[in-house]
Design a protein around this nucleic acid. Structure first.
Lengths: 390, 390
DNA sequence: TCGAGTAACGCAACCGGTTGCACTGTTACA
DNA sequence: TGTAACAGTGCAACCGGTTGCGTTACTCGA
């Protein structure tokens, strides 16, 4: 019975057009809606609560926030009543008058990487951010920024429309236009990554940031490869827009220089950031003359793609070619052979981002925090560990 | 002048505590803060816009939403002015009066799986949801529900506090307490997954839902394994709380029954949902007497863990033991050997969830949509494809 | 030429909280 | 015993939009 109805609706409603004409059951339909609406609007309001308690709105409001100017006994009575009546303050009303949203906006371009794949890196970070935000009673608003010239419009909407109290930014680029914008607007924000020197100096403004020492991390990673006897080490991916990519590339060159290994541009293929890119770039490297004996990838995703390419030409990862990534995603432990990587302390990063932003909201002076990544050695660079791969 | 006044107010308003005493650089500090705040509060309001245009607030409001009762010329003038003044309507104010938030709440327990790992499945779905929500002009509010008895409190806050217009629920359990709650509150919602029959019938209420045919999917998957000549097929993970797990298990048994393969409870290990669980459970199965020749895992994550366990005991995945997962995550293509799986059309699911919820918001009759998953055959079940693994 | 009709816009109430300030009744101190 | 200080509440404005309804100035048909 109900079932039949459901199916009938299913087909018509999909057609987003003149459904009303096709629906015979307008009566029931309308009745149901109004019923739902009634329940929706029946939620207890502060005025109702106050009336029930026999006090003024203002008294109730203050009692609920434990204002010491309200008598202890009154406070308890009102709180109990609020509990009983399932009172929940209307978020919009509170935000409007309080001029605070208790929402943090989180923006990342890589939220949807490529066609449909999600960026695992982003997810782990987002998880950490949400955890900490929940801790301090803030909600997270996810933003999917447009690309290109319309990019700023998303930020404008959030900033101008008071959708959030602050912004968490990542994927910083050189001369990132978002920074000056937020700066001019006086809108609180925190960066995952450091702004380029130019920008920071130009504004004489210490942006609050959290960063992982990409340069040092890359250097440690490449040194690890050199220590294993590899000398023809490729640098893979990252592109040339992101600051982090630049930093890691610098660290790569640092390590080479320190070991007196000449830099070979033919071993560096920077474009791309996805797993597929890693695959493609590596394949190209392998067919060239004098292929690398080790690959240092910008990210774990790229490294995984690289591994696939290496395996496809019949070479053994770890023995024939050492492959390492950067990020330390859970992913790296699942692949075969398990991936050597530079682990970023993402949990810590997420928590610090939130804390710094909250601090900025309170008007505290901005500060930067640099965290050290950690080398995680696994099978993909150690031929001796390869026996576990089968 | 006006600025100074405003600044004074700002600082005093900030002074929730005695931060003033502890900070030595109060001067600069205050200056900087107030500067930021000033910019923050200087955003053009509707009243200001109307004043600039020489019309009434209401006229401006209507002009911006293209109300036909406003003269065409006036509309254009005001829109142009709004553009020029970077006017953005205050979200809280609009929501308060409009009684609509244009926010969709998205709740999932598995957002943080285990200690720090993010659930890739969730992320791909979330990506799809965000994409579609952006399309129709809605924001997404991420919810991290508490576990245990306090679980409902999160929903209460969102529902009672008008944080969102509707809820997207997933990870449905048998007798899920969230469903009756939302139903009673008359709060719009949509489910990823079907509520159990009991609940749907008890409420005589056709919940709006989107689901993937788990039973049929599992059956197809297991039939694939049987077709390859496997007869001792293990069922791995999923636990017994989630409805999806139950459905997949039923599909598994369907396939066995259809092939006249006796069901063996010793081959079924249901607890757990993470990659680590897959590893552990598989290891246990392998050391038992009469280990399986194929493993059908509840999810890709579990399957990846299973593969690791298989490889660790020196067996070859695909040849010695066929392993397949369920979900069709990007992940499956990265592991070695690549994972056979049942792909869920997550992009479609995400889009439909949003559309159905929007429909519910408009008061349209709820409907259910069942999507068919798809078998993706890769190396982990095909010994002939194994040469690609090296 | 006059009343009805309509297009275009203004007025003011309202959404549901927050907050400065005025107003009581006590208590304590001179 | 008068009064200042203070604890405890109430009043009303305000946050920035939305919306029902009233008002004004025309146009048009009879």
């Amino acid at each position: 019975m109900a079932k039949t109805t459901r199916l009938a609706d299913t087909t018509s409603a999909m057609g987003a057009t003149s459904e009303r004409a096709t629906l015979p059951l307008t009566g029931t339909h309308d009745g149901e809606v109004s019923g739902a609406q009634a329940a929706t609007f029946a939620r207890t309001t502060l005025a109702a609560l106050a009336r029930a308690a026999g006090v003024n709105k203002s008294t109730a409001s203050r009692a609920l926030r434990e204002d010491s100017s309200i008598g202890r006994e009154t406070r308890q009575r009102i709180r109990a009543l609020a509990e009983e009546l399932h009172y929940e303050p209307n978020a919009s009303a509170r935000r409007l008058s309080h001029a605070r949203t208790e929402v943090l906006a989180f923006a990342s371009h890589t939220f949807i990487q490529g066609r449909s794949e999600a960026d695992p890196f982003l997810v782990e970070l987002l998880g950490a951010v949400m955890r900490e935000a929940g801790e301090v009673g803030f909600d997270i608003l996810l933003c999917r920024p447009a690309t290109g010239p319309k990019e700023v419009s998303v930020y404008r909407r959030v900033v101008g429309g008071h959708h959030a109290d602050g912004f968490i930014l990542m994927n910083l680029r050189a001369h990132d236009p978002r920074l000056p914008y937020l700066r001019e607007q006086g809108f609180p924000h925190v960066l995952f990554g450091r702004p380029d020197e130019d920008l920071a100096l130009a504004h004489r403004y210490p942006y609050p940031w959290v960063d992982v020492d990409n340069r040092s991390g890359a250097r440690i990673g490449v040194e690890h490869l050199i220590h294993l006897g590899r000398r023809r080490i490729a640098f893979l991916g990252g592109g040339d827009t992101y600051i982090a990519a630049h930093d890691r590339f610098t660290g790569y060159r640092d390590a080479l220089a320190a070991a007196d290994i000449p830099f070979d541009a033919a071993l560096c293929a920077s474009p791309g950031i996805s797993q597929e890119d890693g695959y493609r770039l590596t394949r190209d490297l392998l067919v060239g003359q004098a292929p690398p004996t080790a690959i240092f990838a910008f990210s774990d995703m790229l490294a995984v793609g690289a591994m696939r390419a290496v395996q496809e030409v019949g070479l053994l990862v770890g023995r024939d070619i050492a492959v390492m990534g950067f990020d330390g995603l859970g992913l790296g432990a699942y692949v075969t052979p398990q991936l050597t990587t530079i682990r970023q302390p993402l949990q810590q990063v997420g928590a610090l981002l939130v804390r710094l932003l909250i601090a900025a909201l309170k008007g505290e002076a901005p500060q930067g925090i640099l965290l050290q990544p950690e080398l995680v050695v696994r099978a993909s660079t150690q031929s001796s560990l390869l026996d576990t791969s089968h």
